[in-house]
Design a protein around this nucleic acid. Structure first.
Lengths: 154, 154
DNA sequence: ATACAAGTTCAAGTGAACTTGAAGTCAAGA
DNA sequence: TCTTGACTTCAAGTTCACTTGAACTTGTAT
């Protein structure tokens, strides 16, 4: 019929709770028109945007970052074709990084079993490349890392 | 001298803030004796425990889970030898799982560029194995699996 | 004697990503 | 007419992993 869908439908098809969809809308990640009764009506393309959001989170992006990515797209559209392959390029890199990190951890883990070490100030594992200091309050900003775990400040 | 170390020392050597160490102690993840002045004095082994905690978080475990693992160890000890290899066995599996998931995402991502799909209800990617509904309130319980891993932006 | 650093406790705040609850609107069906 | 169900807004609550701040005590240095 019409190509506008209700929030319940979007929720059902995406698996994302309606409350979360409203929240996303509040953040400007998605947009809707309103029906006569003031109900949200989403264009079908919203499903792609939501998919994008879900995928992005799955690879560890924050909603802030997602917002930044989505902002690059033309108004109201979900990512497709060109756009999509551009966006996903960055993702692939991201995923690879994370995989690499996990593999380092994995290997190091096994190594540590052998050497019996595990002292933070000596173990390579605990000091992956960067030794940047922690920043700001708030939870786990540094873990899994806005780039780093700072096991040895100075 | 004595083999008991102050909280500042543990913090310096582990890179974990003193406030976090107190917090871990409150959770029972680590324990300390007290000096005459009521200051915390940690046995050297605490460094291993802390290392364990840090590593565990890095592979996506919650402090609750860490607590459960540590509870299996003899009192006050950090993991070593036997214990350590047992514990790390589980980790390795965990890491592998996560790597596998990321690889699925990676492959799927590329595939999606080609097919232009991305509709959540059809795409395998968005529904990895578990389609379980979300559970409980609170944030992101469902994303990145029952236990979230923090990916790093970069 | 005085200052200062390093420690203590306890309560409250933080950020992310939502969820929950209360109170209200609106259209369709029995 | 009445009820039900789907929707609305807005404020406040929730979880995790901490951090911050206030008020206080101790030990060492000058």
């Amino acid at each position: 019929m019409d190509n506008l869908i209700a929030i319940s439908e979007v929720s059902r098809r995406s698996g994302v709770a309606a409350s979360a969809l409203r929240f996303y809308e509040e953040l400007g990640l998605i947009t809707s028109q309103r029906s006569g009764a003031g109900h949200r009506r989403y264009p079908r393309a919203v499903l792609r945007r939501v998919a994008f959001i879900v995928f992005a989170q799955r690879i560890g992006m924050s909603l802030d970052e997602v917002a930044a990515e989505l902002a690059k797209l033309p108004e109201g559209r979900g990512p497709e074709g060109e756009d999509w392959s551009q966006l996903s390029g960055a993702w692939t890199a991201r995923i690879d990084e994370r995989i690499a990190e996990l593999q380092r951890l994995r290997v190091g883990l096994t190594a540590c079993i052998g050497c019996g070490c595990l002292s933070l100030d000596r173990c390579q594992l605990a000091n992956p490349g960067d030794r940047a200091a922690r920043f700001g309050p708030g939870p786990r900003h540094w873990i899994g890392a806005p780039r780093t775990i700072n096991l040895t400040p100075s």
